[in-house]
């Protein structure tokens, strides 16, 4: 059986909020290393990969592999019944029909319990190769969100160009064009504001801003975001979570012009 207790329901609430507009029905794959999720959007352009390691829970118990097929809009309805600070316990039997979510108030005696019916989801699983990216940009997540929002007003696509000079987000649309260039920046007082560009070779790729803006819904989960690029491969946008856990988004590039 599965029994996983999170100190704060907020983490799962935010993760589900960040991905529910991109993917609808997902398997939460549970085993002794934690809870993982991989799902593609309907158009097979973007992929969500989440890993909540067992260390993120206390306690965590999962005796065998269990796939919890859950509709995210149903899960959202139930998670709305939890306060951010509630302790959240997820329970399921070995061959479950339902998953049980229990919310306990940390400062009162309230205890709420909900069951969500599970679905059989036959999902294609993609193998994501270990990649040494040509460029990795680490920047404040709100800054990335702002750039995506601002450029979305002008165009559907953004080109991301990394050179030793910095990273340039540029777009071209009907009303005109725009570009935001960032250089490496280190702020000792405010390390959350740091911008780091690790570059082994220059990269230039074009992506849909609609998807990038969607990924930015995860901005509340981490102060900084890693944007990993190599020519001719999908972009990786990664939000690091506590206990070595993560929420990653992959986006297939736009090709040819």
């Amino acid at each position: 059986m599965l029994e996983a207790r999170l100190e704060q329901a907020e983490l799962l609430k935010k993760v589900v909020d960040a991905i529910k507009d991109l993917v609808q029905d997902c398997n939460f794959d549970c085993n002794d290393s934690g809870v993982a999720l991989q799902a593609m959007d309907n158009s097979h352009v973007a992929l969500v990969s989440m890993m909540l390691k067992s260390e993120a829970f206390s306690p965590f118990r999962c005796d065998r592999n269990i796939a919890l097929g859950i509709n995210l809009s149903s899960l959202t309805k139930v998670l709305r019944c939890a306060q951010n600070n509630d302790i959240l316990t997820v329970k399921a039997e070995d061959a479950p029909d339902v998953v049980n979510l229990m919310f306990e108030s940390s400062d009162s005696d309230r205890l709420s319990e909900y069951d969500i019916k599970l679905m059989d989801i036959d999902q294609e699983h993609l193998g994501i190769p270990e990649t040494e990216y040509a460029a990795t940009v680490t920047m404040p997540s709100p800054e990335f969100q702002r750039i995506c929002r601002d450029l979305s007003a002008l165009s559907e696509s953004v080109s991301i160009e990394c050179t030793k000079e910095g990273v340039k987000f540029a777009c071209n649309g009907d009303i005109g064009s725009g570009a935001v260039t960032l250089r490496s920046h280190s702020d000792v007082e405010n390390p959350d504001q740091n911008i780091k560009i690790d570059l082994t070779e220059p990269v230039a790729l074009t992506f849909s801003l609609k998807y990038l803006s969607n990924f930015c819904k995860a901005s509340g989960l981490a102060k900084s975001v890693n944007i990993c690029l190599s020519n001719e491969v999908p972009l990786l946008v990664e939000y690091g979570l506590a206990a070595n856990s993560y929420l990653r988004f992959y986006l297939a590039p736009k090709i040819g012009d």
């Binding site: 097979h44 352009v45 699983h125 849909s208 491969v233 992959y250 297939a252 736009k254």
Partner: peptide
């Protein structure tokens, strides 16, 4: 203009 590619062109089903 640029065409949107799909993930299967890069990641193989397992």
């Amino acid at each position: 203009s640029a065409q949107q590619s799909r993930l299967e062109g890069f990641f193989k089903p397992v």
